[in-house]
Design a protein around this nucleic acid. Structure first.
Length: 128
DNA sequence: CTTCTTACA
DNA sequence: TGTAAGTA
């Protein structure tokens, strides 16, 4: 399931093909890039090369526009999406906090022995 | 022939 | 956004 993502991110489509696939004008496609909504690669001859993911992104932008959302609005949508993504990524590499460990431990004790908060603190005070 | 950049309506 | 001009 990783090789598939690699191909989708593989930039192999020239702008002419993207125009037909998205029904967008070259002017629009380049403008959206200027707004940093899509970041196509460039080949040896400075030609823009798009990936299937770029196509999806462009079609998505097209839908948002049809729904009446402006450039600024679409930017916010993707900025928010990136923010949450970065947040999720950071959380995966961050070790559990003491609070997390206590919560997990408490839940496990509760499910095993049906211990109440009070009896748990009681045993804790006795070095359990 | 296709695409790129720049500039004007 | 569309289009013209001069390139690569």
């Amino acid at each position: 399931m990783k090789e598939k993502e690699l191909r989708r991110s593989q930039a192999v489509l020239p702008i002419g093909t993207v125009m037909k696939l998205t029904k967008l004008s070259a002017r629009q496609i380049r403008y959206y890039e200027e707004q940093e909504l899509v970041k196509p690669q460039r080949n040896e001859g400075n030609r823009r090369m798009y990936s299937l993911n770029d196509i999806d992104r462009l079609l998505e932008i097209k839908d948002y526009l049809d729904e009446g959302i402006n450039m600024a609005g679409i930017k916010h949508i993707y900025e928010e999406k990136e923010r949450k993504q970065a947040e999720k990524q950071a959380q995966l590499q961050k070790p559990l906090t003491d609070a997390d460990v206590r919560r997990i431990l408490r839940d496990e004790f509760m499910s095993i022995g049906g211990l109440s908060k009070q009896s748990l603190s009681f045993k804790h005070n006795r070095n359990f």
